[in-house]
Amino acid sequence: MDTSHTDAAQAVKHKVDAFVRRHFYPRGAFDLHRAAIGWDLLRAPVNVLLAPVFLLMALVALLARLAKLKRFGAWLLGRRLFLKTSVAQRLEAEIAQDLLQGAPLTERSRKLIDDYTAVRSAVAEITTSLIVLLTGYALFGTPTPGIASLAPTVSTYVGHASAVTGFPLGSWLGGIWYGIFPVSMPVSFVVLTGVILAMIASLITTFAGLLADPVQAVLGIHRRRLMKLLDRLALTQGDTAGLAPEHILARVADLSDAGMSLLRYFRG
């Protein structure tokens, strides 16, 4: 049995565990997300908009591989689509310093770390979708997996409350009146509500790691991802990390949101 290899593997595990404790438990997560105060408030929502494009490119790359077009698939997977946030830059620097012992990063290693940080962004989106879903269910008794399904519900609630409050004969009679004759909301008001909610959701996504990182740290998810990252970085060549399931899960929420919105529309 090669004890030196076993000792080296244990040392790497201890180093990763220390990294996770330092950066992803509550105090470390708070310190990490201090970097988000600034331009990340604009970068994060742009990355959310680019995420479906990234998924489409990754799926096309996988199809290209199946069609024996490996160069084209590798070229697609090698594109840097997302804007690099300050949080991602901070995390990249910490990985290079703590886990890679300050070794200079190659183009390939930077791409692998970009893939790793992109997965964290996808988890932030999933966390935001869960928050929106639970908020809709708690406040309105209906599941709302995204802004498209939440906006009509919120605008209807706000419009009804405003109409009842402003009813000429008092809010009590207003509640009865508008219970019989529902308030008709203009499309512009629904759209404006959606825009406001989308801005709030983008802000939540920017700081969703404050909740998601500690949970993933406790569950050992961060440890597994970092160990996989180090395994890939140890290789001298090879493909990038590919399409992580977190990206697909993030888009499932979008598709569910669109489906519920269409269902509501056709039901009138």
Rank of each mutant, 00 (worst) to 15 (best):
D254W: 04
V119N: 05
T142E: 13
L262T: 08
G170Y: 02
A122G: 14
L130F: 12
L66P: 00
L210H: 02
W172L: 11
A258C: 06
D239A: 12
L211E: 02
L69P: 01
R43P: 00
D115V: 09
G194C: 07
L210A: 00
E94S: 12
W172S: 11
G102K: 06
A148R: 13
T193F: 04
Y116R: 04
L63P: 01
H33P: 05
A44P: 00
A58Y: 05
I131E: 00
L66S: 11
A244H: 15
T135N: 02
A258P: 01
G141F: 04
K13G: 00
L210C: 08
T193N: 05
I180Q: 08
R120F: 06
L77M: 15
S202N: 08
V218P: 03
A122V: 03
I95K: 01
V46R: 06
E92G: 10
L50Y: 11
L62N: 05
T205D: 10
W172R: 13
K84I: 12
T153M: 08
G38Q: 10
A234D: 13
T117H: 03
L210D: 02
V215S: 01
T236D: 13
P104E: 00
P214Y: 08
D17S: 08
F207C: 11
L211P: 05
T156E: 15
S162L: 15
L99H: 09
D2N: 15
L226K: 09
A253F: 15
G159L: 05
T3R: 13
I248M: 13
L41R: 09
H247E: 01
L139I: 07
E246C: 03
A51Q: 10
R108G: 08
A51G: 00
A258Q: 10
I200F: 12
L49V: 13
V46E: 04
L235Q: 15
V191P: 03
G175I: 05
D114A: 14
A74V: 03
P26I: 00
Q216N: 08
L230V: 08
L91G: 01
S129C: 10
T127E: 01
G242R: 08
T206A: 05
I147H: 02
D114F: 11
S129H: 07
P186Q: 06
K68D: 14
K13H: 06
S149K: 03
L235K: 11
A8W: 10
A11P: 01
